[in-house]
Structures are given as structure tokens and as C-alpha cells.
């Protein structure tokens, strides 16, 4: 397995007084595949993405991107290598979709440079790839939640990075939009882009991912292929709720059972 991103014995906490969020965490992210990170709320998934991005620095441990440590890259080089779609991305002003997506070209421009024709061409291509060319001139504040998520993904596509990190990319979306976004990510992986998504929805992970990581209390509980990780025992233990994994010919589905009432 070719590794694109590696975390080795990583420890992290937000300050000396705060509890440790990640403890002795080691993980390899395979190149050119979709990796899904699953786990309950507050288990450190977003923190881990921010550490992969280089936004947060672990107080112990090593993070390697394409064979080199974060600190061996300049900020600009790193932004040409890793793209992020955060869980919450508020856009306070009424940019048009194309103006906003064009910002994905920033890593290729110096702070005093304006985007040129090539940047515009790449942006239009990204909008087409995401199937939202018709929204180009619409204000971002006037489109639906699903369309907005496609806009964020288009922005990260114009960044032309080898690694994509997406924090809960399908949260709050209907099934059609989930399908559009996950299918787009699978197409990107087929073109060699290493993709890491966090999600609460095991079925979305099964739909899109090739590699699975289960996190619990700041560490890795299970890691590997679908059959090894997405099991009734693993999910019931992690989510502390009765969960069944049903496997039929060629398909795996996660079903939640009703909780017994107490008292």
C-alpha cells in the first residue's frame, strides 16, 4: 500500500490545561483511495484533519505528507498539496459562486497577484465537474445547502491538490445530494486524488470509501477494509448503541436497532 499521509505516535491537546484529544495515534492514509473516518461526536476526527492539514501542530509525534514532514514544506507548497472542506464554512458576504470558487486558485498566486484567464478556465472546469455551471453567477447565499456543499467542493477542486480532506461532507444533505457528492469524490479518487472524509453515517462511508478508520476517544479502534472494520461488534462498541451490519451479496448495510427502555 502506497502511503500519502502518515501520523506516527501523535499526541495533541488544545492547551496545557485542556485534556489530551489525541493520544499516541498512528495512522497511514493510502494514496489514491477514499478513506472514511468514523466515530462518535467529540472523538477527535476534526482535530485529526486539522493536524493532517498542518493547521494544528501535535505536541509529540510526526506527520508525514508525501514522504516529507510538514515543516519541510512552505505554506504555499502545502496548500498546493492538501485541500480542505471544513464542516462549517460560513461565507459572510454575498460572493457569486464563481468569485468564491475562484479563491481555490490562491495557492498558485502571490498575495499581490490577481487571478488570470487560466485560473478562470480551471474554475469553470471545476464547476462543470461538480455539475453546477448553471449556478456560476448566483450569489452563494441564495443557493440550497446541497448546492453550497458542491460549491465548497468545486473550490477545493480548483486547488488541484493531491490530497482532499473533507469534514462531514454529507451532513444535513438529502439522499440525492449525498449521492452526487460521494460519487464525485469516488471519481476524484479514480483520478488518483487521495481523499479523507469524516462522517457519522456508516452507510455513506460504505458507499464511498475503500479504506475505513474507526476512532474512539482520541485513538484508532479499528482500521482496514470494509469487512474488517464495519462489523456489528465494532460499531455497537464505538457508538454504544445496538447496531447490526447486514451483508447480502455484494452489499453491506448498517441498521440501527431500537434501544431498550430503562426504568
Amino acid at each position: 500500500m502506497d502511503k500519502m499521509l502518515t501520523l506516527e505516535s501523535v499526541y495533541f491537546s488544545y492547551s496545557e490545561e485542556d485534556p489530551v484529544v489525541l493520544a499516541d495515534l498512528s495512522l497511514d492514509i493510502p494514496a489514491g483511495k477514499v478513506t472514511a473516518i468514523l466515530g462518535p461526536n467529540g472523538t477527535g476526527k476534526t482535530t485529526m484533519l486539522h493536524i493532517m492539514l498542518g493547521l494544528l501542530k501535535p505536541f509529540q509525534g510526526v506527520v508525514t505528507v508525501a514522504g516529507k514532514s510538514h515543516k519541510d514544506y512552505s505554506k504555499r507548497e502545502l496548500s498546493q498539496l492538501i485541500g480542505l472542506v471544513p464542516q462549517f464554512e460560513s461565507i459572510p458576504f454575498n460572493f457569486s459562486v464563481i468569485e468564491y470558487v475562484l479563491l481555490g486558485r490562491s495557492p498558485y498566486l502571490n498575495p499581490f497577484q490577481l487571478p488570470g484567464d487560466l485560473d478562470l478556465e480551471i474554475t469553470e472546469k471545476a464547476l462543470k465537474e461538480a455539475g453546477i455551471s448553471h449556478l456560476a453567477e448566483k450569489p452563494v447565499t441564495e443557493i440550497s445547502g446541497g448546492e453550497r456543499q458542491l460549491v465548497h467542493i468545486s473550490r477545493v477542486l480548483t486547488q488541484k491538490t493531491k490530497i482532499l480532506l473533507l469534514d462531514e461532507p454529507t451532513a444535513h444533505l438529502d439522499l440525492e445530494n449525498q449521492n452526487r457528492i460521494l460519487s464525485l469524490l469516488k471519481r476524484m479518487a479514480a483520478h488518483g486524488v487521495t481523499t479523507v472524509i469524516t462522517t457519522h453515517d456508516p452507510n455513506a462511508a460504505i458507499f464511498a470509501a475503500d479504506h475505513f478508520v474507526l476512532m474512539n476517544q482520541g485513538n484508532i479502534a479499528a482500521e482496514g477494509e470494509l469487512g474488517e472494520v464495519i462489523t456489528t461488534e465494532n460499531l455497537s462498541m464505538i457508538y454504544k448503541t445496538p447496531i447490526r451490519v447486514e451483508r447480502t451479496t455484494g452489499y453491506t448495510m448498517v441498521v440501527m436497532d431500537k434501544m431498550e427502555e430503562h426504568g
Binding site: H50, L84, E89, E99, S106, Q159
Partner: peptide, 18 residues
């Protein structure tokens, strides 16, 4: 043009090289 970038969330702006 860079001011647009600086108006985004910190994590997004960082990921775009600011």
C-alpha cells in the same frame, strides 16, 4: 483580491495558503 481570502474561515483561508 487577497482580502476576499482573508474574509473566509481561518481553517479555509489557511488551507488556501494564506
Amino acid at each position: 483580491w487577497r482580502v476576499n481570502l482573508l474574509s473566509l474561515n481561518d481553517d479555509t483561508a489557511f488551507s488556501l495558503g494564506a
